[in-house]
Design a protein around this nucleic acid. Sequence first.
DNA 1: GCCGTTTTCGGCCCGACTGTTTTCAGTCG
Length: 584
Amino acid sequence: MENKDLAEIFSEISDILEIQESNPFRIRSFRRVAQIIENLGFNVARTVQEDPEKLRTISGIGEGAIKRIQEIVETGRSQEHEDLKNQIPPSLLTLLELQNLGPKKIKLFWETLNITTIDELEKAAREEKLRSLPGMGQKSEAKILKAIEDYRRIQGRFRLDDGIEITQALIEYLNSKVKVRRIAAAGSVRRRRETVGDIDILVTCHSPGEVIDAFVQHPDVREVLAKGDTKASVVLRRGLQTDLRVLEDESFGAALQYFTGSKAHNVALRERAKRMGYKISEYGLFRIVNGEKIGNGKKVAGEDEEDIYHLLNLSFIPPEIRENRGEIEKAEAGQLPDLIKLEQIRGDLHMHTKATDGRNSIEEMGDAAVKAKYEYIAITDHSKALAMTGGLDEERLLLHMEKIDQVSSRIPEIKLLKGIEVDILNEGELDLSDEVLSCLDVVIASIHSRFNLSRQEMTLRICRALENPYVNILAHPTGRLLTRREPYPLDLEQVIKTARENRVCLEINAYPERLDLNDLHCRMARDMGALISINSDSHSTEMLRYMQYGVFTARRGWLAAKDVINTYPLEKLRRVLRKEEYGV
DNA sequence: GCCGTTTTCGGCCCGACTGTTTTCAGTCG
């Protein structure tokens, strides 16, 4: 059982309790457990059986949670969860996904009008039956119809690359329209999450009204959700909600901290602040005197984000790891990892050319890599099983290798390594002979077929491939496509273990739609002592820039340069590829 | 339900916006 499955049960329990208006602190506890489980870097189901004490030491996981986890692992379900599900129609939980609709209203609609589904809610709103309920009116009714429409149209999040692109364009636009002093993106865009649900932009300027007006008048704004003196919310044409907040200079840093999140990180940080006699809000860090409540206290920080962390006796925590996954404790101890930076990447080990499904020639890829200031790259086209791409057989590959060497000698600034992305076939055998694989500098293995195997079969298939002595890198290990395809079922812990034993590296495929391994997987791999390679998987020269998204993921996964082989100088890299060394 | 440098009982993060209200509840982030 995966952590995500366990987390979902706890999350559903809290959803149901919320609709039942149960004790809010109890609800929060369940939600916290769900969040903790989902973020843990090891398999909770296994741990609860082998070493329950390890779970007990985690703050937020108590006796109750351990008992429930044990029950779920043993019986496949939680009786309490089942009982709760019987108390409400399950479709009510879907209603919680509608914007501006929470547990109280859902309960109200259910109890008064027997509404249990989105369709029934829509019908009631259209028949104007909602407006007469307490606390409801014409506008609320219209908002609900709107939320239903949005839910059906969007239903999901946007990829990080889209989020960053849109954010940068908006910032440029605001800069061109209004004289702003400071402007920055916060939220999941700043934390570089693989997908973003909305965009947060913070700004300071002397004329708040002007910047708000400019914002809501942006040509891409489809709808203005809210517009006040200090905040405006809009939906952009592509369906992405975007919030702008206008601040005073003296609280810009506090707001940046606050709106960067994550929520879990901020809750933990505020709890820490409180213990130390401070209060944090988006306006600053305040020293509380005489235990006085809101509105009191002397402001001690706010203009710069760094000050807040430092006053709380923490080293500065990079936005990418603000997820309450242990970063606060490490920052307190001065033991945060030295996160990898894009400038530390010396080369890209996964890319395609015209020989298969790439758009550019070997030369063009080499020239583009020189522009990217790389010291080496590997040309890794597909193997013959991917017929659709014109995959290389042994004969063509040998000719291709000669060409790579020729081009490499013509471009003295950079070394071109001879590589292949070889398909892992049905039973874990490789698509090319060991003889030809042994002549290559880099062998990347990957799955492009038969995604519907069982977890055991897929794990065995991949591990067999990793045992081939010539395989260096497992590409896009889980096969997921963001917002499109779920990962195939896989015992990733077993795969990482097998990779490490066979001196194989795991890829962070930096293609924005993949980001595979993801952040949590990276951290698991690092903790288990496996090495990582961050690769763009470019199919054209422009795609080399995707490397940055892989680095974002690596940073979110707590990786340092030493964990990533393509930060190594060429000679050290070659020793890793020849399996003469592995690890630090 | 969880936790403990104030506590094994009693508290648990904070503020803005909206729409319904005439002082506030619900929702969101």
